[in-house]
């Protein structure tokens, strides 16, 4: 059972205080978009064995959404960061690189 640290209220809580919210940094496609783009937005998800970015909400807590960078195999959490960004901040990317040099995920690296 994971521990996650909410970047908004600073609480390190166990997983049951949070609700998982799927893949992070999805790009929304709306009216006017192609079928392929829209399908990708609705249904295509990364399924990596390793570095992954995901959304969490602190439901039994401050109620805020945040992002987490986490390894899907070892469950190491590289860091948690604000939800109001469409890509991981440099500090998070650096933290990952320190542990997993050469990592990639979609178009981040």
């Amino acid at each position: 059972m994971l521990i996650l640290t909410c970047p908004y209220c600073g609480v390190s809580g166990e997983e049951t205080e949070f609700h998982a919210g799927g893949e992070a940094h999805l790009k929304r496609f709306g009216p006017g978009s192609s079928d392929a783009d829209f399908e990708s937005y609705l249904f295509h998800r990364e399924n990596p064995k390793g570095v992954h970015f995901e959304r969490w909400r602190h439901v039994s807590g401050c109620g805020k959404w945040f992002h987490a960078a986490r390894c899907t195999t070892t469950l190491e959490v590289f860091g948690t960061y604000t939800a109001q960004t469409s890509e991981p901040p440099q500090s998070i990317k650096d933290a990952i690189t320190a542990k997993r040099p050469g990592w990639t995920w979609r178009d981040f690296a």
Partner: peptide
Amino acid sequence: IRRTRAAQVPV
């Protein structure tokens, strides 16, 4: 102040 859950409800 700590927000958390007590058994199955937020408190």
